[in-house]
Design a protein around this nucleic acid. Structure first.
Lengths: 214, 214
DNA sequence: GTCTATAGATTGATAGAC
DNA sequence: GTCTATCAATCTATAGAC
């Protein structure tokens, strides 16, 4: 493995576990076993390194999502039928848990993606959002088509609830920090995806505005 | 307003908007219009200042939550009936959007609480989690009682989905960074709470494990 | 391509005068 | 209680030898 790749892998792990600002270039290069100056030589700056990590790991995931969502839209338009809500959700959620070709340690990779949904830091959020935008736009469009009885406002917020739940699920599932909390509830990714799709289908599909009394 | 309070308010705003690490003590004291050294004089350290801000703002919210949840549990035990899911959700969610006595600018206060759910930084998360723990434990207990047909694993994960959705809702609703995204979907807090309770009731209440085909 | 050495800026914290 | 001045540690980034 060459130096550039060594740095990329170390940065991915540290960014995922500790966040961008908390991961110093010294920590990254030490973990990678290379010289401090080589980050700037190979990538130009710390921010450019983050961009490279995101491009390498997030791009394939978003390509799969976008392709699956486009297929659903095309089929829906050809057959002139409403897109199916659980199917949309699965297309949006599943790729985030791994594209199938997950080579190395899966947890760090997933944890990095999970940050895309919850990251409060502006530097990081800007980059992550840019990579997710096409898939997110198409997703919202499909949700509106699948839920024609709901106002744009309601679809928008239910979509936000979904993103929140998804981000939480990914981070809980892959972050080492939550081990104690999960304790007896170890769950494989497939089951977790199934539970999340079920949860979101029921929550988003409601056509009345309200539930419960009061 | 005395110096200590001046520092607390400035710190709250900056921690909420930019995060703990990104808010330097120089930025805080400049914003408060006081001398740099006074943070250490009045609070001891930067971390102790964070602890003070959290204690001041988050404690009353959690006290209200805990009290409402305890009332539900007591009534449920006395009458020997299952607690009502939407009622539980409302008791858990509503106080986070303001205890009613929201004095100053509401957005920063809410945004700070929103961080409690998504904050990746360990320093911050540790403090926030300690303050939320009692309410969270009782919440999980009540959910298990309200959903007796579900396994502990399923209740646990649906509860995590709820936390994710709630955190996202708060931050979207109060963070200035999302203005462009929200654009035409400006929503008052009451409506947002209603939508979230409705979403979560439907999502969590499902008694079959799965939804949809495939 | 890789290294050492260091610049230049910023951080949290403190000593000591008032 | 409040101030100035400064320490010591950290950070990103770069110059220049090899």
């Amino acid at each position: 493995m060459d130096t550039k790749e060594e740095i990329l892998n170390a940065a991915e792990v540290l960014f995922a576990r500790s966040g961008y600002h908390a991961s110093s270039m010294r920590a990254i290069t030490e973990s990678a076993g290379v010289n401090l100056a080589l980050v700037n030589y190979h990538f130009g700056s710390k921010e450019a390194l983050l961009e490279a990590v995101v491009a390498l790991r997030l791009r394939p995931v978003n390509e799969v999502r976008l392709k699956r969502l486009q297929e659903i839209r095309n089929r829906s338009e050809e057959l002139n039928i409403k897109p199916d809500l659980p199917e949309i959700l699965r297309a949006y959620i599943e790729p985030v848990f791994g594209t199938g070709e997950s080579e190395r340690g899966w947890a760090d990779f997933a944890n990095l993606i999970g940050r895309a949904f919850t990251e409060p830091d502006e530097t990081v959020q800007k980059i992550l959002l840019r990579h997710m935008k096409p898939a997110n736009q198409l997703m919202l469009e499909l949700l509106r088509a699948a839920l024609p009885d709901l106002s744009g406002q309601e679809v928008f917020w239910r979509y936000q609830f979904l993103i929140g739940a998804l981000g939480r699920a990914i981070r809980m599932n892959s972050s080492p920090g939550y081990e104690r909390l999960k304790k007896n509830f170890e769950t494989d990714s497939e089951t977790l995806i199934e539970m999340l799709v079920s949860f979101a289908s029921a929550g988003m599909g409601k056509t009345e505005g309200r539930v419960g009394r009061r």
